[in-house]
Design a protein around this nucleic acid. Sequence first.
DNA 1: CTAGGGTTAG
Length: 551
Amino acid sequence: MWLAGMAVNSTSQLFKSLLVTSELIDGQNRGRLASSSLYDICTRVHDCILKSGMDQNPYVANKLMRVYIRCGKVQDARHVFDKLVKKNVFNWTTMIGGYAEHGRPADAIEVYNQMRQEGGRPNEVTYLSILKACACPVGLKWGKEIHAHISHGGFRSDVPVQTALVNMYAKSGSIKDARLVFDEMAERNVITWNVMIGGLAQHGFGQEAFSLFLQMQEEGFVPDSTTYLSILTATACSSAGALGWVKEVHRHAVKAGFDSDMRVCNALVHVYSKSGSVDDARLVFEGMLDRDVISWSAMIGGLAQNGCGHEAFSLFLKMQREGVIPNVTTYVSILTASASAGALEWVKQVHNHARKAGLGSDFRVCNALVHMYAKSGSIDDARLVFDQMSVRNVFTWNAMIGGLAQHGCGQEAFSLFLRMRREGVVPDAITYMSILNASASTGALGWVKEVHRQAVQAGLDSDVRVGNALVHMYCKTGSISDARLMFDGMVERDVITWTAMISGLAQNECGQEAFSLFLQMQREGFIPVATTYASILNVCTSTGLAMVEEI
DNA sequence: CTAGGGTTAG
């Protein structure tokens, strides 16, 4: 407000106000002012600029655009940009960068193409900005074109530009192209390695990410905290076999002194939990000197998902005693616990906390509550939350329908399934899987056939989870021929598919057929699980000992 | 004078 009251009429004063404004936003003062009041100041300065005719000065216009973009008002920046008759490379780059920052690749590309049409020459910074805009799945087709421009424009040996290319390909889903560009680079820096490692990790190539991590050190590069964060990216490490190299990365991090870096430790807690070693996660967590809400949420989520719901809850209470306020993620994390006896008690308490924190009607929290209440045995509480929700998506419906199915309320699940469709929500594979399970309680073959027909119509019958449920349900409703038809027609089968078919056959007195399928599954490389053996052993007890010996 | 490649929870 102090600025709003200032008399801004001379050119020098105008510059001063603009620079002060932009420094407020760009500099260390960022965050001290609400963005609404920044925007207010910005529009006032803009008015003055217009009055003085300085709006055609590319330098002034650029400063103004930056400030608008930082306020989140890209449209206002575009307005300044469009009014600018003579644009320099800074104006073009700022506009493209503004769209990039706000995740608008199509608009960025539009400006970039306009620039080229009007004879503007992109420089390395322009390419960095446009590549950042294209670093998303929809950006790939444009990113490829820009790659060609860059190669022709003589930026082949520019490390930042080439790194941005690697990043663009990785983020837009074309990890192979990312690797191609990376391998062709004659010169790299730590950021280049981080981008490549992070890209591989995010695509689930944990092993490759790890070997690059070793290779970068052989070539004399020192990993920084970003390297550790990139390699520890959650998705890459969620697979079972990952634990070994997570421990290896951890050892490196300790040796390099990053075991006191909170962000690195947070990532370690998360990754250890994901790879199933909640003990290692706990060790890291307990060794931390500082913990933020992410540390607590990661540990709580890790415990919850690894069957330690009670401990997750007591940690949830402890974090609050230590003055850390849970956020939506904390609530969602704790509420995606695996089911365990006595969970309902603490779920209700978490629900209460959420209500008191004003998150009781948060969409994500409610989804998790419906899911968790159903899982921990209180279908009524699940329904209560479900009914009071004003917005529901397919996850909400799935949680409720699946919960009802598991509680043997097939009739109710089915009517909810019909209502979901009336309300225009499109069922996915999980919905069909749940509704098929609901048929178990009614034992009606007619339902299974009807749901099967609809799944075919929706093109979801080729989903292995839906197929498994169909095989299972056909067996359960006694139609072994339909089950076999489904089984034989499946394009993809997993160990659950085989086990469902084998146990269906076993239970329907087709011991011989069950046994030959049991042998066939192993010939095709599937390893039987406990349930598979249990089913096949049932057959053996009824048909004689010859088969048992073979097993 | 101005634009700037990578960054942890779900």
